[in-house]
Design a protein around this nucleic acid. Structure first.
Ligand SMILES: [Zn+2]
Ligand SMILES: [Zn+2]
Ligand SMILES: [Zn+2]
Ligand SMILES: [Zn+2]
Lengths: 516, 516
DNA sequence: TAGGGTTCAGAGCGTTCA
DNA sequence: TGAACGCTCTGAACCCTA
């Protein structure tokens, strides 16, 4: 798994989880992790369960967890190959065997050939798996109180297998997840969109992807999908489960942007094109700006925050240092190296106010409706209005609320930051390629990890715009007026509406002129 | 033709009609029978209709049952041979047969055994199984008492050398309830709201559920519902029978636009969700408003209630504190958190008068026809008319009487309170989801705990409306006029209708957009 | 042959109107 | 009131191509 983690997923925050498990599969990486946000809540609790399944499966992790990031990393091409060739029993095979095995294997000796034909790789671990896996793998995570259907499933399954338990175990337990649909536990009909599913779930997934519909669960997102209830069950949960077990929207041709039929490998390759840049941005952001902001906010906890001016530290320490960190971050991203050093500086100067505002508003306490400032103070709207930021207090709070609602991940913060850099005045005009590339990566990233929230990009861009709109006034209030004790009213000449004039001019005159 | 008839139509509720006729096994026919419901009206006799379908289908089993495992298991090689051109096979069956037949039947010498096995898998047990299996396969999930053991499904397929009359008779005799309406014993038209019913009973059930009507039997509840008398028979018993045979009110989709359906399995989960919200509301209400009101009323017992003005405490202490408690309650309910803090405040301000009125009128002494005020005074109608509340004294008393009649539980008070919040002007318009959810919970709660009183919701809503109607005047009388000794009549300008303007505007302009 | 896409009866809900 | 119908979603079977 080592290199997987290194070049495709190492940058995310699940990396540490990965390192805990050392699954033997390496080789090619065939699948791509599905949305983080959805699998996030599952992760922590599933580790042990998955490990158990892992061993029960004789080295192959359960199909329906394929999309969990740590699993995707383990899901190698090799294991996939092994599966697909060795033990693929679809609908009819299974039914055929289930019904006929007894007769075939006990009464008719010559059917042994057939048996061999169907027999898959046995492993000592697989002895007792079938009765565990088939009925429970999918349903155990469901509500245990809803016990009617799973129970009956278990019972009759056992009853059928009773006479020749040894045979059936050897036969099928090696890949029970390939026999049942990973979504609804019904009989699977093969691999569809990168997961073993039944025809129904295949069609369902396809319809949802093609129609671009999005269903939200009305019941908390824990609905159980079974073969019986799948027709009428919560579509949100059904689709979520599709994604969870690793189905890829991109494998629906209608949903691709180039219309070409793609394989999982193609997906993987495609992902590399933007993953590299995304990872670079991610790493660079986390090691500079993010870590600085975290450190800064951590340290102010220790310092007595009795400073009379909540904004003093902001000016003196936070912004100055943040600018340096921005510089460092930009330096760490190859894409920006086509800008001269001077241009980089201009770009950062153009963005530093936005960055400041953004990274302050990030520290929002929802329940108290207050923002924690670099000084350590928590300030709500009223308190903010007592400072010299009063004119834009509402805007700042709104921004914080918007950010809170958006709830971007670290990687998303990184991308938004880069996007803000790339859209700095001058840069976006003269180096449109940079902006386009970053935006492309952002789009791809959101396409992949925020697919259930079609408005995510829109909202993110809105926030960036909003920040850009008010950062200049923020800058002025922070920097220009040193004497914030004087009455504020005569201060805001007419800036409320025409807030971006002065900074604008400033930006224009020192926007980087086109070099290389 | 025997087995054709057996598995062609055996599993649906028209089977018995079908089995009466012995159709010759005619030519194969690519199954293009038009949908039942559309072709039904053409021929009013079900028999002829089915006959027609039978011929149209050419003896092919219905598509949607083909993949049921037990059915596939019954599907013998022989029948496949016979119908290979016409019959449909699942993906794998088709592939498997195409690819493997060659191997199995030509290369492997012992295939004949297999074939034999496939063809006539005779066993003494199998004689009468098929008629049991097929019809119950589909229906077993409907009624739990209809215990179809899947094992029995495996042993069958002997039916082909039986006279079809036999098992087809057995067919429907084993499950007559699938053919007739469970309520009126008329011809059923399918499964509706989780029971096999006719169109009439389906419509009746839906109407009753949607309208929330409640009928009580006047003859002891043992009326017989038949197809002939159902129109004029006791509606109470008819509805009761509907419920008895398993029809679920919850499957009447009240808020969904299309044919979105939910199964019985979902109902449980559904209950969990509204239960969650209901509990949250309950807890929140009891720990804030309820406990405050109780405390307040308990404490005034100790205080000398010789205060000259019975309404003084009301103004000064009760309302102010109640507003805080409302704030606390709302904060404790996650559903309301999508409202900004400011919106929450507006909402509460919009409701506080209703809350006050409601929680005062709650303290009604029926025998004395008097209300206990937060001041500690018991005031009946006459006494009330001596205060500045005189203009609405009658209304207040009526409200108290209505509340007394309704006699809501604590949980119901909690829900009514939340409902009043959610129906605040502005909130109900811009956050209809909140209102809908709370109302849904209220409905569900009443469905469950007030099912014997179908008018409960109606009456509760009536009370809320009534409160809303008079609370403004109540507010004015309490707050605006400090000198309540002067004549009151010039007071009521025209506020009764235009009572909620300010909150409306306020809410609209900063209603939070896009919450996560 | 695997796995894309397509087809179209069928299930079942809601609505209509005589 | 309920027969008839309109509607959406479903999925088993099928078609097609690499
Ligand atoms: Zn499925
Ligand atoms: Zn759900
Ligand atoms: Zn009926
Ligand atoms: Zn009756």
């Amino acid at each position: 798994m080592g290199y997987n983690a290194s070049y495709s997923y190492g940058q995310n925050w699940f990396a540490h989880q990965n390192s805990i498990h050392s699954h033997p599969n390496t080789a090619h990486h065939s699948s791509t992790a599905s949305s983080f946000n959805t699998s996030l809540p599952l992760n922590h609790s599933l580790n042990s369960h998955i490990d158990q399944l892992y061993f029960q499966n004789g080295g192959n992790y359960p199909q329906n967890y394929a999309a969990l990031p740590m699993f995707s990393q383990c899901y190698t091409k090799k294991s996939f190959m092994k599966h697909s060739t060795a033990a693929r029993f679809s609908d009819f095979e299974r039914r055929f065997l289930n019904s006929q095995r007894r007769d075939l294997f006990t009464e008719i000796p010559s059917v042994h050939d057939l048996h061999c034909h169907f027999t898959s790789n046995l492993s000592p671990l697989e002895n007792k798996t079938e009765e565990v896996l088939i009925p429970t793998v999918i349903s155990d995570q469901s509500s245990s109180q809803n016990s009617s259907s799973p129970q009956s499933l278990v019972i009759d399954d056992n009853a059928q297998n009773q006479p020749e338990a040894d045979f059936s175990v050897g036969d099928f337990s090696s890949s029970p997840e390939e026999v049942v649909c990973g979504v609804c536990s019904g009989p699977a009909s093969g691999r569809h969109y990168n997961a073993i599913t039944c025809e129904g779930c295949k069609g369902f997934f396809r319809r949802v992807v093609i129609n671009g519909s999005f269903y939200r669960c009305e019941r908390g997102g824990n609905c159980t999908i079974t073969m019986k209830n799948r027709r009428k069950s919560c579509r949100g949960c059904r689709f979520q489960k599709c994604l969870d077990i690793g189905m890829k929207r991109e494998l629906c041709l209608r949903h691709t942007r180039n219309g070409r039929k793609r394989t999982v490998d193609d997906l993987f390759e495609e992902e590399q094109t933007w993953k590299d840049l995304q990872k670079q941005i991610d790493v660079s952001y986390q090691s500079t700006i993010h870590s600085f902001v975290c450190r800064f906010y951590a340290e102010i906890s220790n310092i007595q925050s009795a400073n009379s001016d909540p904004l003093a530290d902001l000016r003196e320490k936070f912004v100055i240092n943040l600018e340096m960190e921005c510089n460092a971050m930009v330096s760490g991203i190859g894409l920006f190296r086509q800008l001269s050093y001077y241009d980089q500086n201009c770009m950062i100067k153009n963005c530093i106010d936005d960055m400041t505002l953004l990274h302050i508003c990030k520290h929002y306490n929802y329940s108290q409706r207050s923002i924690r400032w670099p000084s350590g103070h928590y300030m709500n709207g009223e308190e903010l209005k007592l400072t010299k930021l009063a004119p834009i207090a509402d805007q700042i709070l709104k921004l914080a609320q918007l950010l809170y609602d958006l709830n971007p991940s670290l990687s998303e913060y990184a991308l938004m930051t880069s996007l803000r850099f790339a859209s700095a005045n001058g840069v976006r005009d003269h180096f449109k390629g940079i902006y386009d590339q970053v935006f492309q990566v952002f789009k791809e990233y959101c396409f992949k990890y925020r697919s259930n929230d079609s408005k995510f990009i829109e909202r993110a861009m809105q926030i960036l715009e909003f920040t850009k709109c008010w950062s200049k006034q923020f800058y002025e209030l922070i920097w220009v007026r040193r004497n914030f004790d004087q009455p504020l009213n005569d201060n805001e000449s007419s800036n409320d509406e025409t807030n971006c004039e002065t900074p604008n001019k400033r930006q224009r005159q020192d926007s980087p002129n086109s070099s290389p």
